[in-house]
């Protein structure tokens, strides 16, 4: 018994060895962050991290907390499953791009007048960061599609941001700006230090008006949308095709599920996948999140199983959760309604 236990332990420790050894920041970055922030921190779906002007205004603690908190609803994941050493290795790696002296910030609140701050915010900041601090549309700096701003303005009302940035850091950002980005120095733009303190206290006040969260309603969603069809397979396929056209999509093609896996005459004809699209909707979705390929093309499957005919599709709202993008949640809600409309029209 003890022998077996020791053998088991040895096996486990071996398996866990890479996690127990000093973690390699570069490797962790490449595995967890580079897909979005770029191998060299130049940005992509995520914002740039290597810019000297950005590195000059942040602290190690800001990176540390951003990794742990993420930005709920704003694409940046939270890395709660990384252990402390791994997070520290990542912090050191990201900070290796800092050429200046490392800053640390006081946690004390900046004293200002949030009312006056709100007025300045509406005049100076809302055009980029949104009227309620919700941030610019889309993602980071993605080069793969045309965009308004070279870098998306981050969300300032985000719980992950507010929990990671101290007032002093926000103030420094406003005083110095991030050279080389649309975020300029507001001292140079003519605000006084008191004005800036007022804006900072307004930004901090976003903490008191947190955004409604939709996680609870998502938990109730089923992964698949299914409707029973009173018609036979052939009629149902024809109905779905018609309903696709009626609902502002163009019909692409119908294929057996086993298409491409087996010779066409061998494929099971009882599972028919209907592909369709709405190009302008697709373009809108890709601008919000270039990762939406997973939903493409739109498809509904008609299945005959044990004599019963069903139409079914993935539930876009359930998949949307994986993207951590609240703008995408809104589109997936629309997509879900379209799917249901098509399926109900076809099985009426």
């Amino acid at each position: 018994m003890i022998d077996r236990a020791i053998a088991l332990l040895a096996l486990l420790v071996l398996g866990a060895a890479p996690a127990l050894a000093a973690p390699d920041g570069a490797r962790l970055y490449s595995q967890n962050c580079a897909a979005c922030h770029g191998e060299n921190g130049t940005g992509g779906i995520g914002v740039p991290l290597a810019l000297p002007s950005f590195q000059a205004t942040i602290s190690d603690d800001y990176i540390r907390k951003t990794i742990i908190n993420g930005r709920p609803g704003r694409v940046m994941p939270s890395y709660k499953a990384l252990n402390k050493d791994q997070v520290e290795a990542l912090v050191r790696y990201v900070r290796s791009w800092n050429k200046g002296k490392a800053v640390t910030y006081s946690a004390l609140p900046v004293k200002g007048d949030p009312k006056h701050g709100a007025q300045l915010y509406a005049e100076e900041c809302a055009s980029c960061h949104g009227a309620d601090g919700e941030g610019g549309r889309g993602t980071g700096v993605t080069f793969s599609r045309p965009r308004d701003l070279p870098i998306m303005a981050p969300a300032l009302n985000n719980v992950g941001f507010l929990a990671s940035a101290t007032d002093a850091m926000i103030k420094r950002t406003l005083v110095e700006g991030h050279e080389g980005t649309p975020m300029v120095s507001y001292i140079k733009k003519g605000l006084t230090e008191q004005d800036i303190d007022d804006v900072v206290s307004f930004v901090r006040s976003f903490e008191r008006s947190p955004l409604p969260h939709n996680t609870a309603s998502l938990a109730a969603e089923k992964p698949v949308i299914i409707r029973q069809s009173p018609y036979d397979l052939k009629t149902t396929v024809a109905n779905v095709t018609q309903a696709i056209n009626n609902n502002n999509f163009f019909f692409g093609r119908a294929q057996p599920l086993e298409y491409g896996l087996v010779a066409p005459d061998k494929a099971d004809p009882h599972q028919v996948v209907l592909y369709f699209c709405n190009i302008s909707f697709l373009n809108q979705a890709l601008a919000i999140d270039p990762r939406v390929g997973m939903f493409l093309p739109c498809r509904i499957t008609v299945v005959e199983h044990n004599g019963k005919v069903q139409v079914m599709s993935v539930n876009p709202k359930v998949l949307s959760r994986l993207f951590n993008n609240s703008e995408l949640d809104v589109l997936c809600d629309r997509m879900q309604r379209s799917y249901i409309a098509i399926m109900e029209e076809a099985t009426l």
Partner: peptide
Amino acid sequence: FLNRLAALLLLAAACAAPAAADDLLMAR
């Protein structure tokens, strides 16, 4: 010994936990 072993096992399992849970698999 067995208690200690159990504690160690738990620790090892925790360290080996997958890095990302609720998101997408991505690579550049």
